[in-house]
Design a protein around this nucleic acid. Structure first.
Length: 891
DNA sequence: TAATCCCGCCAGCGG
DNA sequence: CCGCTGGCGGGATTA
């Protein structure tokens, strides 16, 4: 009789009423509440009690008629317990109803978040955290069985490892990247082609799939690689069972994502693939079961911030799917060993593989990633066992590295051009709606500069409720924008009154001021005056990029391409981590989402840059890709001459290492991040807001023309790249202000507006103190900065100083006078914060919120933050086009 | 109705 | 035999 889902959860309410029923007291609503309860009660016990307490019938009745209290009397017939219950308190019922844990509240995803919240994403190497399943189960108020589900998935990613019966060891995400890399490599071997097919044509997929699967590498192989289970458990018997294990499935599922071009995998496809591997026959029931399991896994992965749910619309209709939002690039990728731009990347191969921390590696396909402490690319096998035995201090990693390559520069330039165009457009036509842009984009990249924008419309996932959907854009009036353009000459003065102040971290654009303020924790890419040529070229280039990609990776029909694009657009891969819903994310970022900056994807290929406006999918690429792609090889030249300025800054928040932070409400973070990632971003600016984050990275490109700034990337010493990467100061989120006052002696700007030297200031306000970063670029200076240096010890502790060693250095060297100034005047920051300029939508919010939400143990109301996400997502304003700023949503 | 996925039965396994 | 694991699929919830 008892409904399967009896009241268990309800006890929560009961607790309140304890007084009424002594009996009830014992019932503690553990589950719902995050607060761990020491009470001896096991979840089951609670359950039972509850069940006994209330009969399902009653509940139903109650549900149906909330108001129908009178029933109480009659209720007696049922269980006396129930009766008592009712009698006890009417209120109870209501609460009952209210609190009645909905299925969602009991979801595995939520449970997983709670679980994760208990452990630091990046535990200190010293601390060994052991997890007792029983303990956790009781604390979380669930059956142990559920914990197994979570742990199995976590184990597949090496976040935990089983040490003994009922005992697991928490490793955190230190080695997550490595693990993912390994999975990716393995995945490529196994599913590479397969996935290609899928993307190509779904239908064919299956078809092909059948063929393929046989060809695929024997399971044994992958097993070995992937097998995380204890080494010992090689026994056949054990394996048999383990093969089906959630663990394995989880790994395979992840592989599919990593191999997928679009990073989107539909459940049915995944199920089919997974089934195929195991068995040739796919019966319906099996399929269903597989899907169920995949949901379980997906829930955990979602909690980890690695994937998010999306919908893919295909010929057949709308299908549930998941999109990978975790790290995508892994240094030293096998497939394209040479992927690194040869020219730009001087680093010895070995190093690259190793990817020293701070160093960014670009892989052929992937963008670059910051690598934590992995030592070189290891053969899959080798890595396998490493689990996180050695904790690295990812925290330190945080700096950003600059990838230098001409290509890179060119790309940047292109981006800038695009941005500029956009801006111009906006300026010209305030009205342009995103849609319009989108459309144009779809139609042809060429036609409008905007085209590069990702096409959102295509797939549902674009629309996702996830934060990504909308960027809060800084709203700048056209006028303001124009100001920006014209201003170029103004050196950045921190003191400038104009400096927008961001009160709440809202980005502000002061009218007359050349400065823009963004909420802290955002990543920006700014572009200023580009020449027309560039712009034009850019578009085609962009398109090409897309194409190129397609070519490279797999032939994709235009339609497909578009989809892909949209997909990619939808979520900026770069931000992947951002998404993490779970509080954890903050920590993760350090390692996971290191500052991924731009990496020139294909240095070699750059030649292709010919402008061919073909496919509409230009920006489809993940953010990372995006950046890379955008830069067209050809661009560099133009850039130099054109004296375009590009400013790209990225900021990533690093969540405080503090565990406390972990607790933050992730939701907001994502949101903001998501927003940032929005399609637009790619074009001009990419903002990754991290909630309260502390560190962020910047990539700035100053004007190139005259004296392009040459950054000395460790790798590319002499590059004269207009870009500067600034490592973020770790802890504090700080506002960044950039005012590139570039005069563009070089740039003949056709567009009056931009061509002129433009000065743009961004200020990002972090939650708390923000260290203001002031960056001013004036034309020619080329301070050399080593990208890696972010860690610079030299830097004063001060946040402002923190900014980046690079910046600091540059600043020191250059100073205002110098073309590029990186200033850090605190004063500015302060000014900014108070900002009133509300140009930006309210949506933008400072990281502060997070703090708000963070509640240690309790995730707070997950629901609540989810809601936020949704809301935020939606807010996009035309303004966005110009600048996309992610912000945490308002509450 | 379809999509999700919670729940807990029950088998495999190791001690 | 017992308890830990975890595959599996019924069927409740949600969308």
């Amino acid at each position: 009789m008892a409904p399967k889902t009896p009241i268990k959860n309800e006890p929560v309410d009961l607790s309140k009423q304890k007084g009424c029923t002594p009996e009830r007291n014992p019932i503690t609503p553990v589950k719902l509440t995050d607060r761990p309860q020491p009470d001896p009660w096991t979840p089951t016990a609670n359950l039972k009690m509850l069940v006994s307490a209330a009969s399902p019938d009653m509940r139903d009745r109650e549900k149906k008629k909330e108001l129908f209290r009178p029933i109480e009397n009659s209720e007696q017939c049922d269980t006396h317990d129930s009766l008592q219950y009712d009698m006890v308190d009417d209120c109870t019922i209501d609460e009952f109803e209210k609190q009645r844990p909905s299925r969602k509240q009991k979801s595995l995803g939520l449970l997983c978040q709670k679980f994760l919240a208990r452990y630091p994403s990046y535990p200190l190497s010293t601390e060994k955290t052991t997890i007792s399943l029983d303990e956790v189960a009781s604390i979380l108020g669930v059956e142990r069985r559920r914990i197994y589900d979570i742990v199995n998935v976590l184990e597949s990613l090496h976040l935990v490892s089983r040490v003994a019966k009922n005992q697991y060891c928490w490793h955190g995400r230190h080695n997550l990247r490595q693990t993912l890399k390994t999975l990716q490599e393995e995945g490529e071997l196994q599913y590479g082609e397969l996935m290609t097919f899928f993307h190509h044509k779904e239908q064919d997929l299956e078809y092909k799939f059948g063929e393929r699967k046989k060809e695929t590498i024997p399971d044994s192989q992958d097993r070995s690689l992937l097998d995380f289970s204890e080494p010992d458990c090689t026994s056949a018997s054990a394996n048999s069972r383990k093969d089906k294990s959630l663990r394995i499935m989880s790994q395979k599922f992840v592989m599919l994502f990593l191999v997928s071009k679009t990073k989107i995998v539909t459940l049915d496809i995944a199920a089919k693939i997974l089934i195929e591997e195991t068995q040739d026959t796919v019966d319906h029931s099996k399929f269903k079961t597989k899907v169920r399991r995949l949901y379980d896994i997906a829930n955990v992965l979602t909690s980890l911030g690695l994937i998010k749910k999306v919908h893919v619309t295909e010929e057949r209709g709308r299908k549930p799917a998941f999109k990978w939002i975790g790290p995508v690039e892994f240094p030293g990728k096998t497939d394209e060993p040479t992927g690194h731009s040869p020219t730009s990347n001087p680093l010895p191969r070995t190093q690259r593989g190793a990817c020293a921390p701070y160093q960014i590696c670009a892989t052929g396909k992937q963008r670059f990633t910051r690598h934590a402490s992995f030592n070189g690319a290891q053969p899959c096998e080798g890595t396998k066992r490493r689990v996180s035995s050695e904790p690295n201090s990812p925290h330190q990693e945080r700096q950003a590295c600059i990838v230098n390559s001409d290509e890179y520069c060119s790309k940047m330039i292109n981006l800038a051009a695009v941005c500029r165009q956009k801006i111009e457009e906006d300026t010209g036509n305030k009205v342009c709606s995103a849609e319009t842009i989108l459309n144009s984009a779809r139609n042809s990249s060429i036609s409008s500069p905007l085209s590069p924008l990702p096409v959102l419309g295509d797939s549902d996932f674009c629309v996702n409720p996830l934060p990504q959907a909308v960027f809060p854009v800084v709203q700048a009036d056209v006028s303001s924008l124009s100001l920006t353009n014209g201003i170029g000459s103004q050196p950045l003065h921190p003191s400038t009154p104009a400096a927008s102040k961001t009160e709440n971290g809202k980005p502000t654009l002061l009218p007359n001021q050349p400065f823009l303020c963004f909420p802290s924790s955002s990543l920006f890419m700014l572009c200023s005056g580009l020449q027309e040529n560039n712009l034009r070229e850019t578009l085609p280039i962009t398109g090409e990029v897309g194409n190129r990609r397609a070519e490279t990776q797999a032939p994709v029909p235009p339609a497909t391409c578009q989809k892909r694009c949209s997909h990619k657009c939808a979520s900026p891969s770069a931000t992947a981590d951002d998404e993490e819903p779970a509080a954890k994310k903050q920590n993760m970022e350090q390692s996971d989402v290191p500052l991924s900056l731009v990496v020139p994807k294909k240095p070699f290929e750059s030649p292709k840059a010919e402008p061919t406006p073909r496919s509409g999918c230009m920006s489809a690429v993940h953010l990372e890709d995006f950046h890379l792609d955008l830069a067209s090889p050809a661009a560099p030249e133009a850039v130099d001459k054109e004296s375009t300025k590009l400013l790209d800054s990225q900021e990533q928040e690093k969540q405080s290492q503090n565990k406390d932070l972990d607790e933050h409400s992730p939701g907001k973070e994502h949101i903001s991040k998501e927003n940032a990632s929005q399609p637009f971003l790619p074009q001009y600016l990419y903002v990754q807001p991290t909630a309260g984050v502390s560190s962020f990275n910047f990539l700035l490109s100053a004007n190139q023309a005259a004296g392009a700034i040459s950054l000395a990337a460790s790798q590319v010493p002499s590059l004269s790249v207009p870009c500067v990467v600034v490592p973020s100061a770790a802890l504090a989120s700080f506002p960044l202000v950039c005012s590139p006052t570039i005069t563009s002696p070089l740039s003949p700007v056709p567009d009056g507006s931009f061509s002129a030297p433009t000065s743009v200031n961004f200020s990002m306000s972090g939650l708390a103190s923000t260290t203001p970063v002031f960056i001013g670029t004036t034309a020619v200076v080329a301070p050399k900065v080593s990208p890696t240096p972010s860690m610079d010890p030299q830097q004063p502790a001060h946040p402002s100083l923190h900014l980046s060693p690079v910046l600091a250095r540059s600043c020191g060297a250059v100073k205002l006078d110098s073309p590029v100034c990186v200033g850090h005047p605190v004063t500015l920051l302060k000014l900014q914060q108070p900002s009133s300029a509300p140009l930006t939508p309210k949506s933008i919010r400072p990281a502060c919120h997070e703090a708000f939400f963070k509640t240690p143990g309790s995730l707070g109301d997950p629901v609540a933050w989810k809601k936020n996400e949704g809301n935020q997502t939606r807010n996009a304003s035309s303004v966005q086009r110009r600048l996309e700023i992610s912000s945490t949503s308002a509450d």
